[in-house]
Design a protein around this nucleic acid. Structure first.
Lengths: 187, 187
DNA sequence: TGATAGATAGATCGATCGGTCTACCTAGGT
DNA sequence: ACCTAGGTAGACCGATCGATCTATCTATCA
């Protein structure tokens, strides 16, 4: 009643797995996930069917949040498509600087799950398509002659920036990539 | 005598591990490595001290070969620093198109080995420094005003290209990145 | 020829893996 | 008051993990 309802085992598992899978990789043990979430073993298999199902659901909800973050970032930058696009790299700079950052979770999942048939790949592919569409929309508004190709190039810059942030913490990869992006949208 | 001397267990293990670790990730089992190399269990621990030692040595020798590949690629492009730098992306395009390609092995290792103290990270860091130095050397020869920063940007483009090649096989990320690189070295 | 170093094969170790199962408990609805 | 659905706790399963060990074989060299 007066006590706030404790999140159910499904929510607790998603939250704990989101954190543990990012920090320890998808090969983190089921026991560690259950212990961190304070959830019974059985609940995992009831709600997600197994570890793979949990991984997929974690990626799906993270993708939802990250896509919303892209939208919010661009909306906060105003109406100018150019400013909206460049704001993405400022945001990525913040993300890289966050304690505990060590790379793009979607790329990490794709590289770690070497079975090309793993359902997680569909989730990451869908996420990239969404980001590509967000970028392309701005590039169209900007009147870019080849918006689809330019969105490809933006994604290359984003992936490269996240990789650089994970492996070469010195320097400011987001600012370096922002320069390249500015060239890309400055005729 | 007339038979070519069979490579020793160390060489066979390195070759098999290089292949299996790239295709199945660093979490591939020791048994699979031994079986693929036709090597006794004991030999692994004699030569490499353990699985981690083998991983480190595999990355080290791969880094040696890849650094040589960068040099050869640039040398084959002639003397013009601009041509030498852009040739890198043509080469990466070939690598991405190779059957079985699924991303940069060094980034995959860094993302999979979540322990920041794992000795493999030093190897990958050293490799990136070598590539950075190779690029910066050309940028200096080109008279680029900020060669170190430009080399950072080249590495971002390279990492992004490899990531795109691994996750979005459609399109031609190497060509897209080459365009950005050309802008970067065309005042 | 005999000694030695290095390789092979494989048993074995404790730990952990993902997954299934039983037993108990508790909150909500009738 | 009772039933039921969903949760917890934890034993248990076979498989696999990385690593250590013994025992045997083989090539090379003194």
């Amino acid at each position: 009643m007066s006590v706030r309802t404790r999140p159910g085992p499904r929510e607790r598992l998603l939250e704990a797995a989101d954190r543990l899978i990012y920090t320890h990789g998808v090969n983190v043990g089921v026991d560690a996930l259950l212990k961190s979430a304070n959830v019974a073993r059985r609940s995992l298999y009831e709600h997600f069917g197994g570890k793979d199902g949990l991984i997929v659901e974690v990626l799906r909800s993270a993708a939802e949040a990250d896509a919303a973050d892209y939208r919010d970032t661009m909306d906060a930058a105003g109406d100018d498509p150019r400013a909206r696009l460049l704001a993405v790299f400022d945001r990525i700079g913040e993300i890289i600087a966050r304690p505990g950052f060590h790379g793009c979770r979607y790329l990490a999942a794709d590289l770690a799950l070497t079975d090309p048939g793993h359902p997680a790949h569909e989730v990451t592919r869908g996420y990239r398509r969404r980001v590509h569409a967000l970028l392309e929309r701005e590039l169209v508004a900007l009147g870019h002659p080849r918006p689809a190709r330019a969105a490809d190039q933006f994604l290359i810059l984003i992936d490269g920036t996240l990789a650089a942030g994970a492996t070469r913490p010195d320097g400011d990869p987001a600012a370096a990539a922002r320069e390249l992006a500015a060239d890309l949208i400055t005729p």
